[in-house]
């Protein structure tokens, strides 16, 4: 029974990987290029901001620290925010989930396998990106412990991101267009997670308020783990992330159940 289940996961992951790699240029342009442009802009904006003030610190953050932070934020982005499960919403709207409902492999498992397949490819991309950044001298000496912890944390955040994407996808049971809500969330997530401006430079009241939300966990915390920053409370960050993953996954499961009851199976 368990072996049969593992086989289903393994085959779905393998098929997803082949599908992702079938159109390599499209894969690069839709999933990797945005992250590359993101680092290109962030890195250059901060470099020029510091250059125009002759390298003087900004609120105690030196130019090197800021540029290293931006490089790690890029690595976190590659791991956390690259996967997009757009298909779920379309499958629901066009009635394609009917066939999934009949398969002996649930819809969420199919999408989770697809996500895992993507993450396997993405980890190879991350290794290449890390090597290039290191060879270009854009990253300092890497601490193995910080690297492994950072990758582990980022992978868990990607799980949270997947649960959120699934939740947004499921809203297609009620909404004509789901991408709008997703884009709105993404805009706020990028801004409030410290992906461009580190949270240390946010106004203190906003920074305090953000500590009650999952946003800092999405970029700021993992980037600081990579940086081996003493300001990160590892245990509480991992605990807080686990709670958010469970909460969002439960909400997604609840919404899915309500949605399936609401579903009228268009296309049959």
């Amino acid at each position: 029974m368990v072996i049969a289940e593992i086989q289903k996961w393994r085959i779905t992951i393998s098929v997803s990987m082949s599908r992702f790699m079938a159109y390599k240029i499209d894969f690069f342009l839709t999933l990797l290029a945005p992250s590359l442009v993101f680092i290109l802009i962030n890195y250059n904006v901060w470099r020029s901001v510091y250059s125009f003030r002759n390298g003087a610190n900004i609120d105690g953050i030196s130019m090197d620290q800021m540029l290293h932070y931006q490089c790690w934020a890029f690595i976190v982005t590659l791991i956390v925010r690259s996967h997009r499960s757009w298909n779920l919403a379309e499958d629901i709207r066009l009635g394609r989930i009917t066939s999934f409902l009949l398969y002996p492999f649930e819809v969420w498992k199919f999408h989770a396998s697809e996500f895992l397949g993507f993450q396997i490819i993405q980890m190879a991309t991350v290794c290449i990106a890390l090597t290039i950044l290191r060879l270009l001298g854009l990253l300092p000496e890497l601490s193995l412990q910080a690297l492994l912890l950072g990758i582990l944390f980022s992978l868990l955040v990607s799980g949270l991101w997947f649960a959120l994407e699934f939740l947004f996808g499921v809203t297609a049971f009620w909404l004509e267009e789901t991408w709008v809500a997703r884009v709105v969330f993404q805009l706020f997530a990028v801004f409030l997670s410290g992906a461009f401006i580190p949270l240390e430079l946010f106004p203190p009241p906003l920074r305090d308020a953000l500590s009650y939300t999952p946003f800092p966990l999405m970029t700021s915390v993992p980037a600081n783990i990579f940086l081996n920053s003493p300001n990160v409370a590892l245990a509480s960050s991992f605990a807080s992330l686990a709670i958010w993953i469970i909460l969002v996954a439960l909400l997604a499961a609840f919404t899915w159940k309500r949605g399936v009851k609401h579903y009228t199976a268009a296309g049959i």
């Binding site: 159109y23 240029i25 499209d26 342009l29 839709t30 290029a33 945005p34 442009v37 993101f38 802009i41």
Partner: peptide, 21 residues
Amino acid sequence: WTTGGDGVNFIRIQCQQISKW
């Protein structure tokens, strides 16, 4: 000249991101 247009549309969006600074 490409198989799918999504990738090209993403280049377009990235160009907008570059021009916003």
